[in-house]
Amino acid sequence: MGKDSKLILDPLADNNPITIQVLGICSALAITAELEASIVMSISVLFVLAVGNVVISLMRNIIPSKIRIIVQLIVVATLVIIVDLVLKAFAYELSKTLSVFVGLIITNCIIMGRFEAFALGNSPWRSFLDGIGNSLGYAVILIIVGFFRELLGSGTLLGIPVLGNPIPGELSGLYAYGYENNGFMLLSPMALIVVGIIIWVQRTKNKALIED
């Protein structure tokens, strides 16, 4: 059991896919301007990674090693398209919110990375846990970045204003004291800087993570 729980807990901190393995950076930059988008993306990745890991793990003894990357890509693309089609037919509203993320999920390097590094050599149950663990590790960073970018960039959280009213003439809250939203926070470079700060904090607290 100790070994299994490690599969979930490790990626949350000391083996985080974003801050330690530096995977999935592209989507972490692209969609974290709002907290809500970060959460939706996290849930989508959780589903695809957990199911995909199990599928790859079940197929691990029959996948030809020469074309394994292509097979992995096909599995993840098929999964995502099936989910998209089913949602379009039965939960149309939800599918519209998620459609933006579909392309980003297929190309998310965490998914390919876990298929290749873990699912190809482990049992389905352990692969499932690994998928859950890694997507939670991904979610944690996405949500932290989304939180700061939305708060400092738009002054809102989940679309709800938390710092007051920034409209000139109706200033209230912090804005009444001359505070202004930092529009730069909404742009991708700031996501990279926020991720950088998280990496810095994490490595300062745990010296073992520092490479030469």
Partner: peptide, 12 residues
């Protein structure tokens, strides 16, 4: 207005 794949939080 609606869109197919604009950036969430920005163009979306």
């Amino acid at each position: 207005f609606d869109h197919k794949g604009e950036t969430p939080g920005l163009g979306a």
